[in-house]
Computed example of a mutant assay.
Amino acid sequence: MKQEWLRKTIRSFTPYKVPEIKEHIVINANESPYDIFNFPDVKKDFLTRLAKLPSYHYPDPFANTLRKALGRYVSAEYNEILAGNGGDEMIQLILNTFIDEGDTILVHVPTFDVYEIDGQVLGARIVKVPDSEDFKREGETFLEAIRKWQPKVTFICNPNNPTGDIWPVSLIEKMIQASPGIVVVDEAYMEFSGQESMISRLHSHDNLIVIRTLSKAFGLAGFRLGYCVANADIINAVSLTKPSYNLNSFTQLMGVVALEHSEEILKHNVPPTIAVRDYLIERLRTIKGVEVFPSAANFILVRTYDGPRYVKTLSEADICVRSYGNRADLANCLRITATTEYVANKILKVFQKEASHEDC
């Protein structure tokens, strides 16, 4: 194929790649270990409604029943919510709505790669504010970057993926107030943080968009259900770039059912995940050669003396972990999803084994 056929912004483009997984214990994608269909009432409710779902009809283009259920969950009006295929689609729709070629997108790094990737496709200028060496995001530095660069769109991942760092609501409010453009706060992991959502500040800021998902705490990664919350006029604008039937009927139904059982699901899923996260942090910090960073999410970032060696040894133990190749800012770092105590102990065994090799 001729390169000149391609859009100029993707001729040297590196897409977000999902690696092939051969291991049986998968802790590389921050997925929940809990199956939604292991809740008997949820399974019964879903299958009963599924039997009445007309497969020959197109889905509701705006998923209004789901939007109302989401509104009840996050204390927002249904017209302040847009649902779609995961948080990834929300990011894409937001940028398609607000970014022209040459516009500035501001991000802190390291963070979720998709913000930059989707911005590159549109020909945006990506300005990156690096973390400190211990992966703490410097709030005042980021505020200064907002004032200097006057970004069209600013992304704040909170808690941050992959570091787990979290900024308080009061600091993010200062950033929203300082920004001349849209501020997107990605709260994919908020249920694990114990912190108040920025959704509570929605009506105080007309340039705020909050992204949430049912992939993590609800364990619905396979259904691909993300949503954004903003003032109604912002939702109407973002909806202009939405495909007519972007969210299938099956996922819409599962979302409604899961939200109606949200108290049971979250009570079951979230506390044990937090407990395993904190257990891993405590135990990993006792192992020589392993630097462990605080986390408010369902994963932990660690830095080792030899990241590729740890990846290899974990794979030999049938464990797939997230690593970062040759990235300088994440050299020798691994991101570990907190799942069950059984898996945590298998991880610790590998780390203890590698630490003993370092002593040799």
Rank of each mutant, 00 (worst) to 15 (best):
L314W: 11
N246K: 12
H24C: 04
Y16V: 15
R11L: 01
L171R: 12
S356E: 15
A178S: 14
L53W: 07
P159W: 14
T337M: 01
Y115F: 15
L95K: 10
S132E: 13
A51C: 09
D100Y: 10
D45M: 06
S204N: 12
G226L: 02
L240R: 09
D41H: 07
D41E: 15
G71T: 10
T241Y: 14
I21K: 12
F155T: 04
F142H: 06
I91N: 13
L259Q: 04
P159T: 13
G119K: 01
A221Y: 13
V238G: 00
P61D: 05
D233L: 00
L66I: 03
C320N: 13
K128P: 09
Y227C: 05
K242N: 11
Q3Y: 08
E316R: 03
F46M: 00
F37Y: 12
K346S: 12
K349M: 13
T65L: 14
G86R: 04
F37K: 10
T339C: 04
Q92R: 08
V26F: 07
T65H: 11
S239P: 01
V107A: 08
F293S: 13
L284P: 03
V121A: 02
V129Q: 11
C333W: 03
A69T: 01
Y189P: 00
R72H: 09
G87T: 13
V183I: 01
